[in-house]
């Protein structure tokens, strides 16, 4: 039922449950937890190196452009229902939650909470990840009658979390990416040094704030173009009336708004 070809030696950069019948690659968070829960403790060089490389090359550009679950949330947000804007104070605090998920559920507990037989439990995958439920659990249970008698409280708990995620995604922009995703949390650590980034031409910027208004992640691209919360969706680049923002790769502009940059005029 699952693809079993050689591509599964490699992780994909975004959240992608490897139990999904359509998955061609491995999930980086799942692979990391699998390595951490092994009986024989050793540093997961392969997966950690992969995550490090993906983070330093693209940062959260992956969240904006390469994550399937991000796309699902993006599409759900397009459903025309009233939207909720979380107050800034609460929003700012909630954003730290994803770092706690990364440190506690993805790394800490799988590494240190051991069964009497010496193996750990992938806490994030098992108790929290709605991606596994959506991409793996639901299709596998629908396609495979033999799995249905095994459904218990854990499946119901994960379905509840998935439902919460789906409903909240309709009213809040990418709530899982903003508050929960441990992969986004990891990649965000490399935003400041990543190869793909957003650049501001400070001479062309007219400080009108249009970019901040266009940003659904509540970032000020003119002041912090490589903020840890920026998923590099490019909306600010498109919105900038002065053409002051652009994507750059290794210091070279690769994609601007196509607008002619204005020269800054100093009034004496």
């Amino acid at each position: 039922m699952l693809y079993g070809g050689p591509l599964k030696h490699f992780c994909v950069p975004g959240m992608n449950c490897y139990s999904c019948p359509g998955a061609l690659g491995a999930c980086p968070v799942g692979a990391l937890q699998n390595a951490l829960t092994a009986r024989r403790r050793r540093f997961p060089f392969y997966v950690f190196g992969y995550l490090l490389a993906a983070g330093v090359i693209a940062g959260r550009f992956i969240c904006g452009w390469l994550c399937l679950f991000g796309l699902v949330q993006e599409l759900l947000y397009k459903i025309p229902v009233p939207k909720i804007r979380i107050p800034e104070k609460i929003d700012r605090k909630l954003r730290y939650l994803k770092y706690a998920v990364l440190v506690v559920l993805v790394i800490g507990l799988p590494l240190f909470w051991r069964s009497p037989y010496g193996s750990g439990t992938p806490f994030f995958c098992k108790f929290l990840c709605p991606v596994g439920t959506l991409e793996g659990g639901v299709p596998l249970v629908l396609l495979n009658r033999a799995l249905r008698p095994a459904l218990g409280w854990l499946f119901r708990w994960k379905m509840l979390l998935l439902l919460l995620c789906v409903l909240s995604s309709m009213v809040i922009y990418r709530p899982f990416c903003k508050y929960i995703c441990p992969l986004g949390a990891f990649y965000s650590l490399f935003q400041k040094i990543s190869v793909v980034r957003i650049e501001v031409n400070t001479d062309a910027c007219i400080r009108c704030g249009t970019c901040a208004g266009a940003c659904a992640m509540n970032v000020r691209p003119d002041q912090a173009p490589n903020s840890t919360e920026c998923i590099r969706c490019g909306e600010c680049i498109r919105a900038c009336p002065a053409g002051a923002l652009s994507f750059s790769c290794a210091g070279k502009e690769i994609l601007g708004s196509g607008k002619k940059q204005r020269k800054k005029v100093t009034v004496k």
């Binding site: 039922m1 699952l2 693809y3 079993g4 050689p6 599964k8 030696h9 490699f10 992780c11 449950c17 490897y18 139990s19 998955a23 690659g25 491995a26 999930c27 799942g30 692979a31 699998n34 390595a35 092994a38 997961p44 060089f45 392969y46 997966v47 439990t121 992938p122 995958c125 098992k126 990840c129 596994g132 439920t133 793996g136 659990g137 596998l140 249970v141 799995l147 095994a150 459904l151 218990g152 854990l154 499946f155 708990w157 994960k158 379905m159």
Partner: peptide, 21 residues
């Protein structure tokens, strides 16, 4: 050191924890 093989072996089987079983 064979870690890619470990990733492969996990990824080709149904992960019961991941799907909630």
């Amino acid at each position: 050191n064979g870690e890619a093989e470990e990733v492969f072996l996990k990824a080709v089987k149904i992960c019961m924890e991941c799907i909630g079983l």
